[in-house]
Nucleic acid binder design. Structure first.
Length: 349
DNA sequence: AAGTCGGGGGC
DNA sequence: GCCCCAGACTT
Protein backbone atom coordinates (compact mmCIF):
# COMPACT_ATOMS: atom_id res chain seq x y z
CA UNK A 1 0.00 0.00 0.00
CA UNK A 2 1.14 3.52 -0.67
CA UNK A 3 1.02 6.51 1.66
CA UNK A 4 -2.54 7.53 0.94
CA UNK A 5 -3.93 4.01 1.12
CA UNK A 6 -2.25 3.33 4.45
CA UNK A 7 -3.68 6.53 5.82
CA UNK A 8 -7.24 6.04 4.62
CA UNK A 9 -7.18 2.40 5.73
CA UNK A 10 -5.97 3.46 9.16
CA UNK A 11 -8.67 6.13 9.23
CA UNK A 12 -11.41 3.64 8.50
CA UNK A 13 -10.44 1.65 11.56
CA UNK A 14 -9.48 4.45 13.93
CA UNK A 15 -11.56 7.55 13.32
CA UNK A 16 -13.45 9.11 16.16
CA UNK A 17 -17.19 9.44 15.81
CA UNK A 18 -17.66 13.20 15.61
CA UNK A 19 -20.91 15.00 14.78
CA UNK A 20 -19.56 16.89 11.76
CA UNK A 21 -18.50 13.61 10.23
CA UNK A 22 -22.09 12.51 9.80
CA UNK A 23 -23.04 15.30 7.42
CA UNK A 24 -22.07 17.02 4.19
CA UNK A 25 -24.16 20.07 5.00
CA UNK A 26 -21.84 22.97 4.09
CA UNK A 27 -23.21 25.09 6.93
CA UNK A 28 -22.35 22.41 9.45
CA UNK A 29 -18.95 21.73 7.92
CA UNK A 30 -18.13 25.44 7.81
CA UNK A 31 -19.22 25.93 11.41
CA UNK A 32 -17.11 23.01 12.60
CA UNK A 33 -14.05 24.23 10.72
CA UNK A 34 -14.22 27.75 12.14
CA UNK A 35 -14.67 26.40 15.65
CA UNK A 36 -11.76 24.00 15.26
CA UNK A 37 -9.25 26.62 14.08
CA UNK A 38 -6.39 26.49 16.60
CA UNK A 39 -8.71 24.54 18.85
CA UNK A 40 -8.65 20.91 19.93
CA UNK A 41 -11.65 18.75 19.16
CA UNK A 42 -12.27 18.17 22.84
CA UNK A 43 -12.57 21.88 23.50
CA UNK A 44 -14.60 22.75 20.41
CA UNK A 45 -17.11 19.92 20.48
CA UNK A 46 -19.55 21.35 23.05
CA UNK A 47 -19.52 24.68 21.21
CA UNK A 48 -20.37 22.98 17.93
CA UNK A 49 -23.33 21.24 19.53
CA UNK A 50 -24.50 24.48 21.13
CA UNK A 51 -24.30 26.46 17.88
CA UNK A 52 -26.14 23.80 15.88
CA UNK A 53 -28.84 23.70 18.50
CA UNK A 54 -29.15 27.47 18.85
CA UNK A 55 -28.77 28.21 15.13
CA UNK A 56 -30.01 25.22 13.08
CA UNK A 57 -29.57 27.08 9.79
CA UNK A 58 -27.34 29.82 8.49
CA UNK A 59 -30.38 32.11 8.50
CA UNK A 60 -30.82 31.62 12.24
CA UNK A 61 -27.19 32.57 12.77
CA UNK A 62 -27.50 35.53 10.42
CA UNK A 63 -30.54 36.82 12.27
CA UNK A 64 -28.86 36.72 15.66
CA UNK A 65 -27.11 39.75 17.11
CA UNK A 66 -23.33 39.80 17.31
CA UNK A 67 -23.65 40.01 21.06
CA UNK A 68 -25.65 36.77 21.17
CA UNK A 69 -23.09 35.04 18.96
CA UNK A 70 -20.22 36.25 21.11
CA UNK A 71 -22.05 35.08 24.21
CA UNK A 72 -22.37 31.57 22.81
CA UNK A 73 -18.71 31.73 21.76
CA UNK A 74 -17.64 32.87 25.23
CA UNK A 75 -14.72 30.84 26.57
CA UNK A 76 -13.54 29.54 23.21
CA UNK A 77 -11.10 32.38 22.54
CA UNK A 78 -9.94 34.04 19.33
CA UNK A 79 -13.14 36.03 19.24
CA UNK A 80 -12.49 37.42 15.78
CA UNK A 81 -13.62 33.98 14.64
CA UNK A 82 -17.04 34.61 16.11
CA UNK A 83 -17.31 38.09 14.63
CA UNK A 84 -16.25 36.83 11.20
CA UNK A 85 -18.57 33.85 11.56
CA UNK A 86 -21.48 36.20 12.05
CA UNK A 87 -20.41 38.45 9.17
CA UNK A 88 -20.16 35.49 6.80
CA UNK A 89 -23.49 34.05 7.94
CA UNK A 90 -25.18 37.35 7.14
CA UNK A 91 -23.45 37.46 3.77
CA UNK A 92 -24.45 33.90 2.84
CA UNK A 93 -28.00 34.40 4.04
CA UNK A 94 -28.70 37.71 2.35
CA UNK A 95 -26.43 37.69 -0.71
CA UNK A 96 -26.25 33.99 -1.55
CA UNK A 97 -29.76 32.87 -0.66
CA UNK A 98 -28.35 30.74 2.12
CA UNK A 99 -26.15 28.73 -0.22
CA UNK A 100 -22.47 28.47 0.64
CA UNK A 101 -19.96 28.72 -2.22
CA UNK A 102 -19.34 25.20 -3.52
CA UNK A 103 -15.67 25.45 -4.48
CA UNK A 104 -12.28 26.34 -3.00
CA UNK A 105 -11.80 29.55 -4.94
CA UNK A 106 -15.08 31.11 -3.90
CA UNK A 107 -14.98 29.78 -0.35
CA UNK A 108 -11.66 31.55 0.07
CA UNK A 109 -13.41 34.89 -0.34
CA UNK A 110 -15.47 34.43 2.81
CA UNK A 111 -14.38 36.36 5.88
CA UNK A 112 -12.60 34.09 8.34
CA UNK A 113 -11.97 31.45 5.69
CA UNK A 114 -8.32 31.03 4.71
CA UNK A 115 -6.48 28.42 2.69
CA UNK A 116 -6.97 25.64 5.19
CA UNK A 117 -10.68 26.19 5.81
CA UNK A 118 -11.53 26.72 2.15
CA UNK A 119 -9.78 23.45 1.32
CA UNK A 120 -11.51 21.64 4.16
CA UNK A 121 -15.01 22.76 3.20
CA UNK A 122 -14.42 22.25 -0.53
CA UNK A 123 -13.19 18.71 -0.01
CA UNK A 124 -15.44 17.54 2.81
CA UNK A 125 -18.71 19.13 1.70
CA UNK A 126 -18.19 19.13 -2.08
CA UNK A 127 -15.55 16.45 -2.64
CA UNK A 128 -13.22 18.86 -4.42
CA UNK A 129 -9.59 17.80 -4.69
CA UNK A 130 -8.16 20.47 -2.39
CA UNK A 131 -5.46 19.48 0.07
CA UNK A 132 -5.70 20.71 3.64
CA UNK A 133 -2.57 21.72 5.51
CA UNK A 134 -3.13 22.27 9.21
CA UNK A 135 -0.89 21.69 12.21
CA UNK A 136 -1.51 17.96 12.02
CA UNK A 137 -0.57 17.75 8.35
CA UNK A 138 2.64 19.73 8.90
CA UNK A 139 3.65 17.29 11.60
CA UNK A 140 2.79 14.11 9.72
CA UNK A 141 4.48 15.17 6.48
CA UNK A 142 7.57 16.71 8.06
CA UNK A 143 8.20 13.54 10.02
CA UNK A 144 7.30 10.96 7.41
CA UNK A 145 9.37 12.66 4.71
CA UNK A 146 11.99 14.08 7.05
CA UNK A 147 11.44 17.67 5.96
CA UNK A 148 13.28 20.29 7.99
CA UNK A 149 11.91 23.36 6.26
CA UNK A 150 10.29 25.52 8.97
CA UNK A 151 6.55 25.03 8.68
CA UNK A 152 5.79 28.70 9.30
CA UNK A 153 8.27 30.06 6.77
CA UNK A 154 7.14 31.25 3.36
CA UNK A 155 9.04 28.39 1.72
CA UNK A 156 7.65 25.85 4.15
CA UNK A 157 4.05 26.88 3.62
CA UNK A 158 4.46 26.49 -0.15
CA UNK A 159 6.44 23.27 0.08
CA UNK A 160 4.00 21.48 2.37
CA UNK A 161 0.97 22.67 0.43
CA UNK A 162 2.50 21.33 -2.76
CA UNK A 163 3.43 18.04 -1.13
CA UNK A 164 -0.03 17.56 0.33
CA UNK A 165 -1.56 18.36 -3.06
CA UNK A 166 0.57 15.65 -4.66
CA UNK A 167 -0.32 13.08 -2.01
CA UNK A 168 -4.05 13.61 -1.75
CA UNK A 169 -6.27 10.74 -2.88
CA UNK A 170 -8.02 12.22 -5.89
CA UNK A 171 -10.72 9.58 -5.73
CA UNK A 172 -11.67 10.40 -2.16
CA UNK A 173 -10.27 13.80 -1.15
CA UNK A 174 -12.70 14.20 1.75
CA UNK A 175 -11.61 10.96 3.33
CA UNK A 176 -7.91 11.56 2.73
CA UNK A 177 -7.94 15.03 4.23
CA UNK A 178 -9.75 13.92 7.33
CA UNK A 179 -7.57 10.83 7.56
CA UNK A 180 -4.26 12.70 7.61
CA UNK A 181 -5.56 15.20 10.16
CA UNK A 182 -7.00 12.51 12.40
CA UNK A 183 -3.76 10.58 12.08
CA UNK A 184 -1.80 13.62 13.23
CA UNK A 185 -4.18 14.28 16.09
CA UNK A 186 -4.34 10.82 17.64
CA UNK A 187 -1.37 8.81 16.31
CA UNK A 188 1.43 11.10 15.12
CA UNK A 189 1.01 13.34 18.18
CA UNK A 190 3.38 16.21 19.06
CA UNK A 191 4.72 14.45 22.16
CA UNK A 192 5.47 10.77 22.60
CA UNK A 193 3.81 9.32 19.50
CA UNK A 194 3.57 5.55 19.78
CA UNK A 195 5.62 4.71 16.71
CA UNK A 196 5.69 0.99 17.51
CA UNK A 197 2.06 0.65 16.48
CA UNK A 198 2.18 3.15 13.60
CA UNK A 199 1.09 1.88 10.17
CA UNK A 200 3.78 4.08 8.59
CA UNK A 201 6.67 3.02 10.82
CA UNK A 202 8.39 0.98 8.09
CA UNK A 203 8.96 4.04 5.91
CA UNK A 204 8.99 7.09 8.21
CA UNK A 205 12.21 9.07 7.70
CA UNK A 206 12.05 10.79 11.08
CA UNK A 207 11.68 7.45 12.84
CA UNK A 208 14.57 5.94 10.91
CA UNK A 209 16.81 8.89 11.76
CA UNK A 210 15.52 9.27 15.32
CA UNK A 211 14.29 12.76 14.49
CA UNK A 212 10.70 12.45 15.69
CA UNK A 213 11.12 14.87 18.57
CA UNK A 214 12.81 17.51 16.39
CA UNK A 215 10.17 17.63 13.68
CA UNK A 216 8.39 19.66 12.58
CA UNK A 217 10.74 22.65 12.70
CA UNK A 218 9.09 25.94 13.64
CA UNK A 219 10.56 29.43 13.63
CA UNK A 220 10.65 31.89 16.52
CA UNK A 221 8.76 31.90 19.74
CA UNK A 222 6.19 34.43 20.75
CA UNK A 223 7.30 37.31 22.90
CA UNK A 224 5.05 37.67 25.89
CA UNK A 225 4.07 41.10 27.15
CA UNK A 226 3.20 41.73 30.78
CA UNK A 227 0.28 44.01 31.59
CA UNK A 228 -1.35 45.12 34.82
CA UNK A 229 -5.12 45.35 34.96
CA UNK A 230 -7.28 46.93 37.65
CA UNK A 231 -10.95 46.12 37.26
CA UNK A 232 -13.44 48.33 39.06
CA UNK A 233 -16.25 46.16 40.33
CA UNK A 234 -18.79 48.83 41.19
CA UNK A 235 -21.73 47.95 43.40
CA UNK A 236 -24.44 50.23 44.67
CA UNK A 237 -27.30 49.84 47.13
CA UNK A 238 -29.71 48.95 44.34
CA UNK A 239 -27.56 46.04 43.21
CA UNK A 240 -26.39 47.77 40.08
CA UNK A 241 -22.94 47.67 38.53
CA UNK A 242 -20.99 48.91 35.53
CA UNK A 243 -19.87 47.01 32.48
CA UNK A 244 -18.04 48.52 29.53
CA UNK A 245 -17.65 47.19 26.01
CA UNK A 246 -14.13 46.72 24.62
CA UNK A 247 -14.62 48.42 21.28
CA UNK A 248 -10.99 49.03 20.37
CA UNK A 249 -8.81 46.58 18.51
CA UNK A 250 -6.77 44.12 20.53
CA UNK A 251 -7.76 41.36 22.85
CA UNK A 252 -11.41 40.65 23.56
CA UNK A 253 -12.81 43.09 21.00
CA UNK A 254 -16.56 43.63 21.51
CA UNK A 255 -16.64 41.69 24.74
CA UNK A 256 -17.60 43.31 28.05
CA UNK A 257 -15.70 43.84 31.25
CA UNK A 258 -15.79 45.80 34.48
CA UNK A 259 -14.36 49.28 33.93
CA UNK A 260 -10.62 48.85 33.54
CA UNK A 261 -7.71 50.95 34.72
CA UNK A 262 -4.44 49.71 33.28
CA UNK A 263 -1.25 50.50 35.15
CA UNK A 264 2.44 49.98 34.55
CA UNK A 265 2.90 47.93 37.70
CA UNK A 266 0.93 46.16 40.35
CA UNK A 267 -0.72 48.87 42.41
CA UNK A 268 -0.84 49.18 46.16
CA UNK A 269 -4.05 50.33 47.76
CA UNK A 270 -2.60 53.80 48.21
CA UNK A 271 -1.52 54.06 44.60
CA UNK A 272 -4.90 52.84 43.49
CA UNK A 273 -6.62 55.49 45.59
CA UNK A 274 -4.44 58.21 44.12
CA UNK A 275 -5.26 57.02 40.63
CA UNK A 276 -8.97 57.22 41.31
CA UNK A 277 -8.91 60.79 42.55
CA UNK A 278 -7.82 61.75 39.05
CA UNK A 279 -9.93 59.34 37.08
CA UNK A 280 -13.24 60.07 35.47
CA UNK A 281 -14.92 56.72 35.98
CA UNK A 282 -15.63 57.46 39.60
CA UNK A 283 -15.57 61.22 39.67
CA UNK A 284 -18.24 62.94 41.72
CA UNK A 285 -18.95 59.68 43.51
CA UNK A 286 -18.39 59.07 47.16
CA UNK A 287 -17.27 55.50 47.55
CA UNK A 288 -15.50 52.94 49.67
CA UNK A 289 -13.22 50.46 48.08
CA UNK A 290 -11.52 47.22 49.01
CA UNK A 291 -9.21 44.84 47.21
CA UNK A 292 -10.77 41.49 46.37
CA UNK A 293 -7.58 39.58 45.64
CA UNK A 294 -4.40 40.35 47.55
CA UNK A 295 -2.29 38.34 45.13
CA UNK A 296 -2.56 39.35 41.50
CA UNK A 297 -4.69 36.99 39.49
CA UNK A 298 -2.48 35.97 36.57
CA UNK A 299 -4.29 35.32 33.31
CA UNK A 300 -2.09 33.97 30.54
CA UNK A 301 -2.80 34.55 26.87
CA UNK A 302 -0.62 33.61 23.93
CA UNK A 303 1.11 36.99 23.79
CA UNK A 304 0.24 38.59 27.10
CA UNK A 305 0.38 37.80 30.78
CA UNK A 306 -2.23 39.80 32.62
CA UNK A 307 -1.62 40.59 36.28
CA UNK A 308 -5.03 41.49 37.54
CA UNK A 309 -6.57 43.07 40.60
CA UNK A 310 -10.29 43.33 41.22
CA UNK A 311 -11.22 46.39 43.26
CA UNK A 312 -14.63 46.34 44.90
CA UNK A 313 -16.13 49.82 44.77
CA UNK A 314 -19.16 50.35 46.94
CA UNK A 315 -21.25 53.46 46.68
CA UNK A 316 -24.80 54.57 47.41
CA UNK A 317 -26.11 54.99 43.93
CA UNK A 318 -24.48 54.57 40.54
CA UNK A 319 -25.46 56.74 37.56
CA UNK A 320 -28.39 55.50 35.52
CA UNK A 321 -26.22 54.01 32.78
CA UNK A 322 -25.38 51.20 35.17
CA UNK A 323 -26.86 47.73 34.78
CA UNK A 324 -28.50 45.32 37.22
CA UNK A 325 -26.02 42.84 38.61
CA UNK A 326 -28.30 39.96 37.75
CA UNK A 327 -28.08 40.99 34.07
CA UNK A 328 -24.32 40.43 33.91
CA UNK A 329 -24.79 36.85 32.77
CA UNK A 330 -26.34 38.06 29.52
CA UNK A 331 -23.16 39.82 28.40
CA UNK A 332 -20.27 38.13 26.61
CA UNK A 333 -17.20 38.45 28.82
CA UNK A 334 -13.65 37.10 28.80
CA UNK A 335 -12.94 34.02 30.91
CA UNK A 336 -10.95 36.22 33.27
CA UNK A 337 -14.13 38.15 34.05
CA UNK A 338 -16.52 35.20 34.11
CA UNK A 339 -14.22 33.38 36.52
CA UNK A 340 -14.27 36.35 38.85
CA UNK A 341 -18.05 36.65 38.65
CA UNK A 342 -18.41 33.02 39.58
CA UNK A 343 -15.97 33.24 42.47
CA UNK A 344 -17.29 36.52 43.78
CA UNK A 345 -20.64 35.81 45.29
CA UNK A 346 -22.77 38.83 44.48
CA UNK A 347 -25.61 37.28 46.47
CA UNK A 348 -23.79 37.94 49.71
CA UNK A 349 -24.18 41.68 49.35
C1' DA B 1 7.71 38.56 7.02
C1' DA B 2 6.43 39.42 11.50
C1' DG B 3 2.70 40.36 15.00
C1' DT B 4 -1.64 39.65 16.92
C1' DC B 5 -5.45 37.12 18.54
C1' DG B 6 -7.63 32.93 23.80
C1' DG B 7 -8.04 29.39 26.37
C1' DG B 8 -7.17 24.62 27.60
C1' DG B 9 -4.22 20.74 28.07
C1' DG B 10 0.08 17.72 27.72
C1' DC B 11 4.38 16.99 29.68
C1' DG C 1 7.62 26.63 32.25
C1' DC C 2 7.06 25.69 27.15
C1' DC C 3 4.62 23.94 23.33
C1' DC C 4 0.56 22.75 20.67
C1' DC C 5 -4.13 22.95 18.95
C1' DA C 6 -8.58 20.80 12.15
C1' DG C 7 -5.38 29.34 11.24
C1' DA C 8 -6.77 34.00 9.67
C1' DC C 9 -5.90 38.61 9.46
C1' DT C 10 -3.29 42.94 9.94
C1' DT C 11 0.67 45.67 9.58
Amino acid sequence: MDFKNKLTYWYSNNKRDLPWRNTQNPYHIWLSEIILQQTQVKQGLPYYDAFIKQYPTVFDLANASEEEVLKLWQGLGYYSRARNLHTTAKHVASELNGHFPNNYKDLLKLKGVGDYTASAIASIAFNEVAAVVDGNVYRVLSRYFGIKTPINSTDGIKEFKKLASNLIDKEQPAKFNQAIMEFGATQCKPKNPNCTVCPLNDSCIALQKDMIEFLPVKLKKTKVKTRFFNFLVCIDNNKNTFLEKRTSKGIWQNLYQFPLLESHKSLSSEEFHLLNTEDSVLNNLKFDYSLYNTEDKVHKLSHQHLYTKFWIIETKELPNNSIAIKEIKNYPVPVLISSFIEAFNFNDL
